[in-house]
Write a protein that binds this DNA or RNA. Structure first.
Length: 137
DNA sequence: GCCAACGTTGGC
DNA sequence: GCCAACGTTGGC
């Protein structure tokens, strides 16, 4: 199983909307590195839901329930989306400032590649973050 | 509102 | 193929 972190601006698509929807389609990704990560996802992988811009915190955990397939919102180019399902909310959420304050998370892509919207998380990082957000890893 | 990082575009 | 200009993301 692989682990990921996916960003969404909460005024565009917040965690609460995914919870309400049940299953969500992660579309709109227009960056090649992010696309490669989407294509590497497999059913059963887990991902953190991160609110960018507003909140700047990890707010929940998702499961990948549908592997990469064509993104219908893409007007040109072969972009892809995946399907996700909310598993558990972060209680409490883990803010960007908290991540920065934890030396053991200093290598997270969240800090190193701050503009990448779909990024991998190592199993070690996954475990550490889960512990902090009250979610069973 | 500003700025750093970084991707994309277009002239040459 | 290089690089300047420009656009976008996202933190502060």
């Amino acid at each position: 199983m692989k682990y990921w972190l996916m960003k969404s601006e909460p005024d565009v698509y917040p965690w609460s909307k995914l919870v309400a929807d049940g299953i969500g389609h992660w579309d709109g990704v227009r960056n090649h590195t992010a696309k490669l990560n989407l294509m590497a996802m497999r059913k059963g992988d887990r991902a953190f839901f991160y609110h960018s811009n507003i909140g700047k915190e990890i707010v929940g955990v998702m499961e990948i329930v549908g592997e990469a397939h064509p993104d219908p919102t893409a007007e040109e180019g072969p972009w892809v989306q995946v399907s996700v399902k909310a598993l558990a909310p972060a209680d409490p959420p883990l803010g960007l400032a908290d991540v920065k304050a934890m030396p053991e998370l200093a290598q997270m892509a969240l800090l190193k590649y701050s503009r990448l919207s779909v990024q991998p998380v190592t199993p070690t990082e996954w475990k550490i973050v889960c512990k902090r957000i009250g979610v069973k890893a």
